[in-house]
């Protein structure tokens, strides 16, 4: 990095997500939300019956978006395996998200203590805290489960000659259960990313790639330390 050219304003920010991570998050994330919304109409006969050009709008949307989601998941393999700096950053994020340690346990205990109004200070979180890791693991597991079960139902929507009716009907409740389980963590994620004042700053990171350094130092101090060491800026 050419430090001579950076302004002081730029130094107030810290790079959080490279573009492949952001692209994947928004592509799959928006599809995920639309799929859940169109999926829950299955419990609402009046909405389900809505038609356009003799096609049931929500059923059709759900299947088309579902195939797009399956394709999107498969397409993640490209950047994930790419021997580029961006691919490396993506693999690093995924590695961080799927690695747990004592700090993660302590972070959850901190959350429980604070929920019960007991005094507690959080451990020094790295790039991701335990809540973010749990959200990522839940999203990944649910996405894969929903995509696999949804693919069976999507094939059944288009042709009855591939899967037997018994198999399809055994998959259907699983798809429903996974979809319902996905709602609370998604609501929590949207609340923390869009509304909650303390965590809203993270949205900038997912939109523009960078976050305020002082915010990062408060919420992810161990990560800021590591980044600043790498930048040769350790105090």
């Amino acid at each position: 990095m050419d430090r001579g050219l950076t302004t002081s304003a730029a130094q107030d920010f810290i790079e959080r997500f490279e573009s492949p991570s952001r692209r994947i998050h928004w592509t799959l994330g928006i599809l995920y939300v639309l799929l859940l919304l169109s999926g829950v109409t299955n419990f609402w006969p009046e909405a389900k019956a809505l038609q356009f050009a003799d096609v049931r709008v929500f059923a059709w949307l759900h299947v088309v978006l579902g195939w797009a989601f399956v394709a999107g998941l498969a397409a993640v393999l490209g950047p994930l395996l790419a021997p580029t700096p961006a691919g490396h950053a993506l693999r690093a994020d995924l590695g961080e998200l799927t690695r747990a340690g004592l700090d993660d346990y302590l972070w959850l205990q901190h959350l429980a203590l604070r929920a019960m109004r007991a005094p507690s200070t959080p451990p020094r979180a790295g790039k991701f805290n335990a809540g973010q890791k749990l959200n990522a693991l839940a999203s990944l597991t649910l996405s894969l489960g929903l995509a696999a079960s949804g693919a069976v139902l999507g094939v059944n929507y288009m042709t009855k000659s591939v899967f037997g009716v018994g198999f399809v009907e055994s998959v259907f409740p699983w798809h429903t259960a996974l979809g319902l389980i996905a709602i609370p963590p998604l609501v929590a994620h949207l609340y923390l990313a869009l509304l909650h004042p303390g965590t809203r700053e993270s949205l900038r990171g997912m939109l523009l790639g960078r976050v305020r350094r002082d915010w990062a130092r408060e919420h992810h101090p161990a990560w800021v330390d590591a980044v600043e060491r790498a930048e040769g800026r350790e105090d």
Binding site: G101, L102, D103, L106, Q109, S120, P123, R124, A222
Partner: peptide, 12 residues
């Protein structure tokens, strides 16, 4: 990290 976490637990 390990020492820090251990210290946290002990302190907690």
């Amino acid at each position: 990290t390990a020492r820090r976490a251990g210290g946290e637990r002990g302190a907690a």
